[in-house]
C-alpha cells in the first residue's frame, strides 16, 4: 500500500483535486438553487408539498441510472456527472433550508411583519440569519454525499485527459487495472476530502452564524 502511495502520489493529488472541483461545482449549484427555493417556500409557509415532494422524488432517483439516462440525452462528460450530483445534493439542501426557515419562531416573524418589514426584509433580516445553522447542516451533509458519489464521474465519461482533471473515480471505478490496494487508497483520499470539506463548512457556519444566535444557543444549552 505504501508502495502504491509513493508510486501514485502526485496522480492521487491531482485526481483528488479534480474530485474536489467536481463536488464543489455541484455543491455550489445546489446551494444557490436549493437555498433560494427552500428558503422562499419556507418563508411563504405554503406550497410545502413542492419542497417536500420535489425533494423526495429527486432523492428516489438512483444516481447511476440517472447518469445512464443522461448519456442518452446529453452525452458523456462533466455536465452529465454534475447534473447527477446536483440531483443528489439539491434535495438535501432544499429540504433543510425549507425546514430551517419554517422553524424560525412564528412570533418573531409576526413581530417583524407587525413592525412593517416587507417579505424580503423579513426573509433576509430575520428568517435567514436565524436559519443559518440548520441550512449549513444541510450543506455539510450534501457535501459528504457528493464527495462519496463523485467517483461515478468515470461512468459518465468524465476521466483524466489533457485539459481535464478527472476524479478519484479513475481509480475507484477501475479495480481490475488499479488493484484492490489502489481502490482502497483512492477511497481513503475521498474520505479525507469529505472530512476536510465538512470541517471547512463548519468553520464557515461559525463565521456566518450571528453572534446573538450563538449566545442564545449556548445559553439554552447551559445546565440549569
Amino acid at each position: 500500500m505504501i508502495q502504491y502511495l509513493s508510486d501514485n502520489f502526485s496522480r492521487l493529488l491531482v485526481l483528488t483535486l479534480g474530485h474536489a472541483v467536481l463536488s464543489l461545482v455541484a455543491l455550489l449549484i445546489s446551494v444557490v438553487v436549493g437555498v433560494s427555493i427552500g428558503a422562499y417556500v419556507g418563508h411563504l409557509r405554503r406550497y410545502s408539498f413542492l419542497a417536500i415532494n420535489l425533494g423526495n422524488v429527486l432523492r428516489a432517483l438512483p444516481t447511476l441510472a440517472l447518469i445512464a439516462v443522461m448519456i442518452a440525452l446529453i452525452g458523456f462528460g462533466f455536465v452529465n456527472i454534475t447534473i447527477a450530483l446536483v440531483v443528489l445534493a439539491l434535495p438535501l439542501i432544499l429540504t433543510n433550508a425549507y425546514t430551517a426557515v419554517t422553524g424560525v419562531d412564528r412570533g418573531m416573524v409576526e413581530a417583524a411583519r407587525g413592525m412593517g418589514m416587507k417579505d424580503l426584509e423579513i426573509l433576509f433580516q430575520v428568517e435567514l440569519p436565524n436559519a443559518i445553522p440548520l441550512i449549513m447542516t444541510g450543506v455539510r451533509t450534501a457535501w459528504v454525499y457528493t464527495v462519496a458519489t463523485a467517483y461515478l464521474a468515470i461512468f459518465a465519461g468524465y476521466a483524466t485527459r489533457p485539459g481535464q482533471l478527472g476524479s478519484l473515480g479513475d481509480i475507484i471505478g477501475n479495480p481490475s487495472g488499479e488493484g484492490t490496494t489502489g481502490v482502497l487508497v483512492a477511497a481513503a483520499f475521498a474520505i479525507v476530502l469529505a472530512f476536510l470539506g465538512a470541517g471547512l463548512i463548519t468553520l464557515a457556519e461559525r463565521a456566518m452564524t450571528p453572534t446573538g444566535i450563538k449566545l442564545s444557543r449556548s445559553a439554552a444549552m447551559a445546565p440549569a
Binding site: G107, M108, E110, R113
Partner: peptide, 30 residues
C-alpha cells in the same frame, strides 16, 4: 401604517441575532 404603530408582544418580540441597539433601530433603519 405598520412602521408608524408601536408593536410590543409577549416573550419573543426581540430578534436574537441583533444587538439591543440594532433591535431598537429596526424601524428607524427601515
Amino acid at each position: 401604517l405598520r412602521r408608524d404603530i408601536g408593536y410590543v408582544i409577549q416573550q419573543v418580540g426581540l430578534f436574537p441575532h441583533m444587538t439591543i441597539e440594532a433591535n431598537i433601530g429596526v424601524v428607524p433603519r427601515l
